[in-house]
């Protein structure tokens, strides 16, 4: 770790001021990605602005049509929330598949989507449900939020305050975990809302994406058979010691099929 100033603001306004005043400031949520990066001296921020004391960034609110999750809400809280389980069971299910209990107790939805790890799970839910990322200054559609490998639509100093999910008619997430890291080698989130179908794929490529051919097929016939025959191209997929691009492409179809079955 290099030396940095450590700030612990208690309000969103103070957090934004702290970042604005810093030479090279960075927000910290649960530190699950930040701390290892700092420890390995891969980053050298002048200031770390910890968000843990800001109550306005925490908590889960369910109203008629949406579930809104504060940026600092840990994965375990989403997983264990009866309200989320009731409104969008697939989301509670997904949160429970992230990492291990320690990670779920510290890692947050804001940190996860801001980080945009290609193998992270939440991006699949954000895109797969057509959610909205709410920041201190605007609302960003899930479809526009994830730009590329570790890259999002956030501008410098922009703070995610919450993620807002519309309620689907049905949805499910299937994850094929990496045997070593347990991140997603491939994760597929499917949802259906008023006949509108979304299929979001994480892990396979550099960034979460929608599998349009499957969405079209499922819109016509929401069944496993409808996607079973659709093979996706692995041309731009990740290729590493755990899974080749070709295998990942195969898994997208298998996981999509299983997600459709799970969604019921």
């Amino acid at each position: 770790m290099y030396e940095f100033n450590f700030n612990r603001p208690a309000s969103i306004a103070d957090a934004l001021t702290a970042i604005a005043d810093a030479d090279d400031g960075q927000f910290m949520a649960g530190g699950q990605t930040m701390i290892p990066v700092l420890k390995q001296r891969l980053a050298m921020p002048s200031d770390v602005v910890e968000l843990a004391n800001i109550d306005d960034l925490k908590g889960i609110a369910v109203d008629g049509g949406t579930v809104t999750i504060g940026a600092m809400t840990p994965h375990s809280e989403v997983h264990n929330s009866l309200e989320v389980a009731d409104a969008i069971p697939a989301l509670a299910d997904l949160a429970g598949m992230i990492g291990d209990p320690h990670v779920r107790n510290r890692g947050t939805i804001g940190g996860s989507v801001a980080n945009n790890d290609p193998a992270a799970d939440y991006p699949a839910a954000v895109v797969g449900l057509g959610a909205t990322v709410v920041t201190d200054r605007r609302e960003i559609a899930g479809d526009d939020f994830f730009v590329d490998l570790f890259e999002t639509a956030l501008v410098e100093g922009e703070l995610i305050t919450a993620v807002r999910f519309p309620l689907p008619d049905k949805a499910a997430y299937m994850k094929f975990p990496n045997p070593a890291s347990r991140y997603a080698i491939v994760g597929v989130f499917v949802s259906q809302s008023n006949g509108d179908v979304r299929v979001a794929v994480t892990g396979a490529g550099p960034c979460v994406f929608r599998e349009v051919a499957m969405e079209t097929a499922l819109a016509a016939d929401f069944s496993a058979d409808a996607v079973a025959g659709i093979s996706v191209s692995g041309d731009d997929f990740n290729n590493d010691i755990h899974a080749s691009a070709e295998y990942r492409a195969h898994l997208v179809t298998v996981m999509a099929k299983r997600a459709v079955i799970k969604a019921g």
């Binding site: 990496n178 070593a180 890291s181 010691i241």
Partner: peptide
């Protein structure tokens, strides 16, 4: 060493 962390070395 490609498997230099537990992200890649599958214990």
């Amino acid at each position: 060493l490609v498997t230099g962390t537990f992200l890649d070395y599958a214990m």
